[in-house]
Design a binder for these strands. Sequence first.
DNA 1: CCGTATTTGTTCGTATGTATT
DNA 2: CAATACATACGAACAAATACG
Lengths: 264, 264
Amino acid sequence: MRESMWRQIAEDLRLKIESGELGAGGMPLPSELELRDSYRASRNTVRDAIKWLVTRGLVVTRPGQGTFVVQKIDPFVTTLSTDINAPRESTAYASEVMASSRIPKVSDPRIEIQQASGLTAAELHLQHGTSVVSRHQDRFIDGVPWSFQTTFYPMRLVEQGAEWIIRAQDLPTGIVGYIENVLGIKEVGCRDRFLVRPPDGAETNFFKLPDDGRISVIETIRTGYDQVGEPLRVTVTTYPADRNQFVMTAGKVPAEQTRALPRG
Amino acid sequence: MRESMWRQIAEDLRLKIESGELGAGGMPLPSELELRDSYRASRNTVRDAIKWLVTRGLVVTRPGQGTFVVQKIDPFVTTLSTDINAPRESTAYASEVMASSRIPKVSDPRIEIQQASGLTAAELHLQHGTSVVSRHQDRFIDGVPWSFQTTFYPMRLVEQGAEWIIRAQDLPTGIVGYIENVLGIKEVGCRDRFLVRPPDGAETNFFKLPDDGRISVIETIRTGYDQVGEPLRVTVTTYPADRNQFVMTAGKVPAEQTRALPRG
DNA sequence: CCGTATTTGTTCGTATGTATT
DNA sequence: CAATACATACGAACAAATACG
C-alpha cells in the first residue's frame, strides 16, 4: 500500500531538515503556500505534514512568522547519591551545575502550610488533614527553568522547636541538617521513587513545554527516615525529560567527567 | 479571546470521559457524525477535537469501529540495587515480578557479534570496529512486552576462555558471575545512567506504542567495571514510560511493599 | 502609529478511500 | 455485498498574529 501524501511530505521535510537543507540557521521553512505549490498538494495536506513534524518535536509553528526547526537542548546530568552521607541536595546542585561550566540559579524558598493529602499523607504516615510545611524552590540553568522541588515536613517538627523550617531562607546546613542539629533527629536512610508522566498545566507553563503533553516530566520522590524508621520529610522533584539525565554509581568505579550521552 | 471551537469540544469530551459519562466499559464514543450533530459543528472540527484527545493519550481511534477511551496500565515498579553485591539483574527480575502477583516471561537470549560503535565503543573503551558480543532479551509481564535489555561484552573475554558468553542460554550465576568464576575478573562497581527519550521505530513496534512518539521510553545504561577499573560490560535496558516506575533506597529505611504511586 | 502584506490558525463544505462488522 | 466509521485529500473563506515600510 502506498503511503499517504501528507506522510510522504512529512518524511521529505524531515530528511531535508536533518540534512540542514531546510531551516538551517534559524531560518523559517518555506511558507505553507509555497510548500503547497512545490509539492502540488492542498494547503491542508501540507498542514497535516507539518502537524506531524510538530508532534515529533522537530519543528514549531509561530502564527504570523512561519515554521522553524527546534534546536536540541544540551541536557544536564544530575548525580544521584547512593550514599546517605553525601552532601545535601540543595548544596550539591549548585556545585554540580558549575562543574559543567553552566550558571545555576535557585529561587528563594516559598513556604506554605498545607493539609496532608494523598502522597504526603501516605509517605509521611500522617492523617489526612494534618498540617505539613511545604518548601518549594525553582531551579534554573543559564536562565532556563530546569527543575523544581517541593519538600514536605510534618508540622510537628516546627512545634518541637525547628522553627526555621517555616522561614523563607536557605540554611547552610540544609533543612535536614538543621533538624538534626536542633532536634537530634537524624535522617539515616531514604527511599527514592522515579516515574515518568505527562506534565500538568503548571509544569507545562513553568518549563515552557509544548501544550500537547508530548514532552514528559521525570518525577523523583525522596522520602527520608529517621533513626526509628519514622518518615522525616518527602521531597518531590520534577524534571522535564528533554533537558535532564541522571547518573548513579555503585561500588568502585573509575572517576569520569559526567556528560550527556548521545544516541549510538 | 474566546477558545476555539475544537478546543471547547475537546475539553467537554475530556470532562465527560473522566466522569465516566462517555466511553465507560469499553463502549465507543459517539461517532464523528453524531458528535458533529450534537455539537452543531463540522465533522472536521470534531476530528480536530478528537485528534487532541488522541495526542494526549486519552482515546484511540479505530477505523471501522469508533473512538475508544484508553484504560490506564497498572505500572510495575523495578527496584534499582544500590549495592554491588545485590542479586544479578537477570535473576532479580523474575522474583520481583512474581512478588507482585504477576507473571514474568523472559525470552531466550539472542546473541550477536557486532562491531563496537558509538555508545559501546565509548563505554567499553574499545576502538570503533572492535568485536563485541551482544546478548539481547525481551521481558514480558502477564504476556505484555514490558522492557528489553541488551548487554555488550568485549570479544576478548570470549577469547580468554569465557565461551559461554556466546551461547544462547541463561546461566544460573548470570553472565557476570560466570566471568568471575572462569576468568577471575570480578565486577566491583557499576555506573548507571538514566535518560528519557522518544521511542525509535523498533521500540514503537515491539511495545505497541502509538506511532506519534507521545509515550517516551526510559533508557538505563549500566556499565560494569572490574578490579582494575576497566569496563567489563555495558547493559542497555529500555522501558516504556507508561508502564514502569523505579524505586531505590539508601541507608536504613523501613521495609515496605513496593507499589506504584498514584498522583495526589 | 497606522496600514498593508505575509503567515499561520480555524472552520466550513465535499468527495473518495480503507478498514471493520 | 452492504452498512458503518474513520482516514485522506481538495478547495475556500475568514480570523489572528506578526513584520515592515
